[in-house]
Nucleic acid binder design. Sequence first.
DNA 1: TTGACTTATGTAACCGTTTACATTTATTAC
DNA 2: GTAATAAATGTAAACGGTTACATAAGTCAA
Lengths: 334, 334
Amino acid sequence: MSSIKNSTKKKATLKDVAHTANVSVATVSRVLNDSPNVTKKTKDHVNNVIQELSFSPSPMARALNTGRTRTVGALVPTLDHAIFSKFLGALEKQLSSHKHSLVISTTNGSPQTEFEQATALLNMGAEALIVSGKTRSQEFDALVKRFNVPVIITSYYDPKADYPSIGYDNAAISKLALDHFIEKKYTAVTVIHGPTSDNDRTRDRLRGIKSDNRFNDVTYMEAELSVDGGCQATNEIISSNQKPNVIFCLSDVLALGVIFELQRNNINIPNDIAVMGFDNLEWAEHTVPPLTSIELSVKDMGKHAADEVCHFLNSGKPINNIKLSGHLLKRKTT
Amino acid sequence: MSSIKNSTKKKATLKDVAHTANVSVATVSRVLNDSPNVTKKTKDHVNNVIQELSFSPSPMARALNTGRTRTVGALVPTLDHAIFSKFLGALEKQLSSHKHSLVISTTNGSPQTEFEQATALLNMGAEALIVSGKTRSQEFDALVKRFNVPVIITSYYDPKADYPSIGYDNAAISKLALDHFIEKKYTAVTVIHGPTSDNDRTRDRLRGIKSDNRFNDVTYMEAELSVDGGCQATNEIISSNQKPNVIFCLSDVLALGVIFELQRNNINIPNDIAVMGFDNLEWAEHTVPPLTSIELSVKDMGKHAADEVCHFLNSGKPINNIKLSGHLLKRKTT
DNA sequence: TTGACTTATGTAACCGTTTACATTTATTAC
DNA sequence: GTAATAAATGTAAACGGTTACATAAGTCAA
């Protein structure tokens, strides 16, 4: 039963190491941060003791001193869409190469939830926040001001936004599709898009389309952002009297549903109806027929966001606005 | 230029609050943690000052004292696969409801990277680790012992594993598919699976199939775990002299590629070749024809992992092994 | 009013590091 | 061998909170 006492083996502290090594805490600390002014001999000795006591420094104590947690928080609407996962994957990878960690929170696209999660993130020591889209709640702004942390907007490029932004000119990019439609002589367009509430990127893409006066036969349909949503919208189109030349999906996920459903109804793509996607997800080139889509370099976005935020954190260098481009990939659905 | 001085407005500390509110630090701390023993009057007063100075307590100092960071680390092979994102989304959501944060790191499926990322996670204060699969490196085990943090294995149920596990009996679940094949009188089976190195779940699924002596005409193909991988494998099948009744994909992602490629080659599903998936991703029910698949309740896995780890962290209650079940969803590709 | 007891507040030690500064030890030049 | 200089080590004060314990203020019965 004496093991009960032993089971309370508290983690060794730097002080413990100093004591058993017969040196001062400062020396141990120096060894830990491999300062040049330590004899190889003592260094080795201390390192041995560290091993022996299987000591590892407390991140909290360290953070308290240095004021740095090396943690960045990211707020995304959901993890359920590949586009965000891809972004976060790249972000995490790059942050990790800068020795920073990524904490992810989901917001459901709700500014209120975003604020709450941001609070949690900041309370746990995030040194910066990466958010999606440029729309923030007032509470969020106040919070950020209070904590005085940098914020980077992603997926949306707007140098006049409240925070530096790294992303796309969504309105302009959606015009790439319209140019393509002109080229293909598609005049009747049905646009299927995800929910616009709390999604300024979608709104912007729509704005881009609406502001283009080359088209006067455009129908807009809002659908749930899923393959299922694409299927449902397609069924509505089929059973309505719409006769679009092309269905423009503001997300490949929707386009996949459209392709499936058109096919299920023996409607030929692109002869009867053409289909165009957005995002160029991994499988887009493999659909039957291969999906014409717009490639957004989401991984670059993650990489840039990581680089910018780390530069700022490490050297105070101001965060740049970065405009990323989109590319139209012409394939066989148009 | 006097603003230079002002720009160095350091964040208010608890001490500052105490001072301007004319109370002791202890009182402020009590207000912060709403201890019952504070007069409503002083409480209000202190809260006002807190507002006024826009003070917010330092998470590091707090963590240093309490020893708690309320942070959990998760290690997954990649964020590029929906199955992990789904899991992490659920995990994050549930952790968040327990007032904990999730830090995500990707390992690329490499035990070495896993170890490195785990080190980083622990160094930044993660109180627990959630990992995928039961295979760990020795270094990892040593690390965990040193930090003395709980670890939960996911995607793999094995009460005899080194750490508590929450997941599936992968071998048993893959037999669900085999039972179905018997029922459908499919005798020639081609199995397409992702890389097995560093993926014990896939190995286990394969083990389950190999150990089933009802089949003697089984071909195994390893492919990159992507739609593209599925396409390539299918082309190999077509150009080989294999004549499977059914192609069993150990991931829906592969199955999607198979469906596309068979369709592209005008091979009828299921009459010429049947297809079976695994994971039941969101779109599985919408493919043409709808994909028969095996549903794994990945979101439950996330939820359970969060609950178990929080219970442990909050009350020392030991972590349970939890076996989750898989369900065969019969659809039209078989 | 007083003593006994409860409640509110204050004091100071502590959590585990880093680091400026002081001190000791080693090196070099003469 | 000694003074001057450089290098290694030690001391103690931060960092910003929490909390055990001490003390002051209120409450209430007799």
